[in-house]
């Protein structure tokens, strides 16, 4: 089951001579729901995910944080000081860095996560098979994980985290290396795991975010400019279109008005709901 994530008055500064990356933000993500964090590059999307995952504290020694992060029943003040895995799974923007380069097959690469968690070896094969079946990776199990296509790498990276069955999953722009079919397939899967997992997705691709998100948080310059449900977001779309990539908004509005491709028709039906 998913866990709640609560962020209260979070302020973060990477170093004393840089402006605040996050300027006192607050929002909640309820268990088994999906929150999409939208905003242009540099808005603070990744900083939020890194703060929740625990790596912000351990990798930026000079960073300064204020506020509170609650993960399930555990309150971290101001932010977690070490990796919260396996409670929090985090898939980075560049999926290829999740491929450790230590192993010769995809199966070994995914099993490595189970080894770090000291899962009994007798359970390894079953857990790996379950996740690879769910992500459609069965045919890649014996392939070298460093010789895969962008989409395959993305799915293997996701599998290396999801095999741990984290109750909270953070995804940083998960669709950057995927084609349109790959993007839709990934988001279909995310909708499925949302039943048991709390999702936080940093996205610049608004149409995809709307496909899976229940709540949306829009950031600009480390400040929240919108925090609400999908319906509220669609209602207020015009208000803050200027802060997001104009072409994407143009595409969305065009798609809503006149859906042509399968993806656009699907998007229009999602938005109509």
């Amino acid at each position: 089951m998913g866990l709640v994530v609560e962020i209260r008055n979070l302020v973060y500064q990477y170093s004393p001579h840089l402006p605040n990356a996050l300027g006192g933000i607050s929002f909640n993500v309820l268990p088994n729901t999906c929150c999409a964090i939208l905003g242009p590059t540099g808005a603070g999307k990744s900083t939020i995910l890194q703060a929740i995952s625990g790596i912000l504290r351990s990798h930026h020694r000079q960073g300064k944080a204020e506020g509170v992060i609650r993960i399930g029943d555990v309150i971290h003040q101001p932010i977690p000081d070490k990796s919260q895995f396996p409670n929090v799974g985090y898939v980075l923007q560049e999926p290829e860095v999740h491929i450790s380069g230590l192993f010769e097959t995809v199966a070994e690469e995914i099993t490595f996560t189970l080894r770090t968690l000291d899962v009994p070896p007798t359970l390894h094969a079953d857990r790996v098979r379950r996740i690879t079946d769910a992500l459609g990776l069965g045919h890649l199990l014996h392939r070298n994980p460093t010789h895969l296509s962008g989409g395959e790498t993305q799915r293997v990276a996701l599998a290396t985290i999801l095999v741990a069955e984290p109750p909270i999953l953070l995804l940083d722009e998960p669709t950057t290396s995927l084609d349109i079919h790959g993007q839709m397939r990934l988001y279909e899967y995310l909708r499925k795991i949302k039943q048991t997992t709390t999702l936080l997705i940093a996205e610049t691709n608004i149409d995809l975010a709307l496909f899976v998100a229940d709540y949306l948080v829009v950031l600009e310059g480390g400040q929240i400019v919108f925090n609400g449900t999908k319906a509220e977001f669609i209602q207020r779309i015009a208000d803050f279109s200027s802060i997001l990539a104009a072409t994407e908004w143009h595409d969305i509005l065009k798609s809503i008005a006149n859906p042509r491709t399968r993806a656009e028709k699907r998007l229009a039906s999602v938005l109509a709901k």
């Binding site: 790596i55 990798h59 895995f85 985090y90 980075l92 860095v97 450790s100 490595f112 996560t113 290396t160």
Partner: peptide, 21 residues
């Protein structure tokens, strides 16, 4: 840059000193 990201990725998978590779 890649080393930093790989270090983070290993930490995100719970790598610890006792793990059998």
């Amino acid at each position: 840059s890649e080393s930093i990201d790989r270090g983070i990725a290993l930490e995100l998978r719970g790598f610890h000193s006792g793990v059998r590779l």
